[in-house]
Design a protein around this nucleic acid. Structure first.
Length: 365
RNA sequence: GCACGGGUGGCAGAGUGGCCAAAUGCAUCGGUCUGUAGAACCGAAAAAUCACAGGUUCGAAUCCUGUCCCGUGCA
């Protein structure tokens, strides 16, 4: 099993590692120093969004996204494949998917064609430390036949991505190259996809698609199938995963890399994550419920002069009271979102620290 | 002082004779949030006898008269 995440500049970071989403090269409401101070090692940026907003010139001028956002830690990039769902496959989506790639119209005058080759080319320009193949997202509602189409296309595209990557680097020398497993809830498709991707050859596999069903249950089975099919020296990446207990469970299957919008989006929407213990040492990740949500201005007694969490050593918890944070949310000041985002990111970085030390085998529901 | 314009739920603001016990937005309350077109979205409740007094009319927030406020312009 891989023990460290290696960045392009040769630095090594302990696993597991969680990358908050800085889709447009910014974690909303935070700057790069804020991120460092939450002890979050790295961030994820999105190829599609950066390509759309910046094109290639500016990134080239800065020599990569790292220097552009002045962030020293590892940066990984998503291929833009997930945008299929929100931009093209959604009800109001304008654009289409063909074997060539994904075309989309961000405005009436502009058409963007995203191909596997283009995605890899651009990610390499971004100089990110881990890049992801362009995949064809399997919608959660897909029938077996529909899912199969996306899987076949995902495999074909993955091969083209690998070929493009090979023009720049030898696998193992450059940024990590991650294949993405589609197939929805169909176990045999997941297995087929994972095996085929491993034949092409990558540094790791990602658990792609939409892992939550209509009843909000996480699809652990698919995650497990992928983990079982992946070669031992592969990195396993839970794309878009997830809630803290979901990360704990995937980590037990061997997943080491995660990214998710939840901690930061929830923070902006006034949902803070709080460990149900008074010291980091006492946090028991195998407990059914080792954390709770805290919504500052919605508590019965919210004007309390005490920190949001006694476990936490973030900027918020070390300096400000629940009452003050509630006030900031009530007056809708942006600093409420910043402080909450900082807090939630520290929650996740503490989780990673705990996971790095604890190995269990029991699942949390 | 004169001339215009205006006074409608907590706030903003539609509506200019009947379909207006009065739209809508904000605020309030509840919920959702998983490779971020999200400081977003969904839902709910409550709240105005439409400045005041009189008049016209079968019927007025809506027309007329007077009074009181507010704004803009001119003296």
């Amino acid at each position: 099993m891989v023990k460290y995440f290696r960045s392009l500049n040769g630095k090594r970071y302990p696993l597991p590692i969680f990358f908050p989403d800085a889709t447009q090269a910014v974690v909303k409401t935070l700057d790069s120093l804020d991120i460092v101070n939450t002890q979050t090692p790295g961030v994820l940026v999105n190829t599609y969004h950066l390509y759309r907003e910046l094109g290639g010139g500016l990134i080239k001028k800065f020599g990569g996204v790292r220097k552009f956002m002045n962030f020293d830690g590892p940066i990984i990039s998503d291929s833009g494949g997930f945008q299929l769902m929100s931009l093209v496959k959604s009800k109001n989506g304008k654009g289409k998917v063909s074997d060539i790639g994904i075309s989309f119209y961000p405005s009436k005058k502009r058409k963007i064609l995203f191909t596997p080759e283009k995605s890899i080319d651009y990610q390499i320009k971004l100089k990110t430390d881990l890049i992801v193949v362009l995949d064809d997202f399997t919608p959660p509602t897909a029938s077996y036949d529909e899912a199969k189409v996306t899987v076949e296309r995902t495999i074909k595209w993955a091969k083209r991505c690998r070929e493009t990557y090979d023009k720049y680097y030898k696998l193992g020398d450059g940024p990590y190259l991650i294949g993405v497993v589609q197939g929805g809830k169909y176990g045999d498709l997941r297995k087929y996809c994972a095996v085929k991707l491993a034949e092409i050859g990558f540094d790791g596999l990602g658990y792609g698609g939409w892992p939550i069903d209509e009843n909000n249950n996480f699809d652990y089975r698919s995650a497990e199938i992928i983990a079982e099919c992946a070669p031992d020296d592969y990195l396993l990446y839970g794309l878009g995963v997830g809630k803290p207990h979901e990360i704990v469970n995937l980590h037990k299957m061997g997943y080491q890399i995660f990214d998710c919008v939840l901690p930061t989006r929830d923070a902006r929407h006034e949902r803070l994550y709080v460990y149900n213990e008074n010291s980091v040492k006492n946090i028991e990740l195998n407990d059914d419920k080792f954390y709770s949500y805290y919504v500052p201005s919605k508590q019965k007694n919210y004007l309390l002069n005490e920190p949001v969490s006694k476990v936490c050593d973030c900027l918020l918890c070390k300096n400000y009271s629940k009452a003050y944070l509630a006030h900031l949310f009530r007056i809708n000041d942006i600093s409420a979102m910043r402080l909450a985002s900082i807090h939630n990111l520290r929650f996740y970085s503490i989780l990673m620290e705990k996971l790095g030390r604890v190995a269990g085998d029991k699942y949390i529901k």
